[in-house]
């Protein structure tokens, strides 16, 4: 799954550390999501969307071909 988390974060001037603290996850989790190495749970995805006051699909982009590859 692709995402625009890094763009949203940088636009708002939030560091990975600050975002991680606000969402109560580790900084590595934020970094892994941004690099596309880790797909967050639906709960964390909602928390991220709520933090940026936007809809999930604005941040996370579901690609059907990628989804099939990931088994999603």
């Amino acid at each position: 799954m692709n995402n625009r988390l890094a763009d949203f974060r940088k636009e708002r001037g939030v560091t990975q550390e600050e975002l991680a603290d606000a969402l109560e996850v580790s900084r590595q989790t934020i970094s892994s999501i941004e690099n596309g190495r880790y797909n967050p749970s639906i709960v964390l995805a909602f928390k991220i969307a709520r933090f940026f006051q936007t809809a999930i699909e604005q941040i996370f982009i579901y690609d059907e071909l990628e989804g099939e590859k990931d088994g999603c």
């Binding site: 991680a20 109560e24 996850v25 580790s26 590595q28 989790t29 880790y38 967050p40 964390l44």
Partner: peptide, 9 residues
Amino acid sequence: SIEQSDERN
């Protein structure tokens, strides 16, 4: 506590 409950970890 965050490190332990972090979903990726």
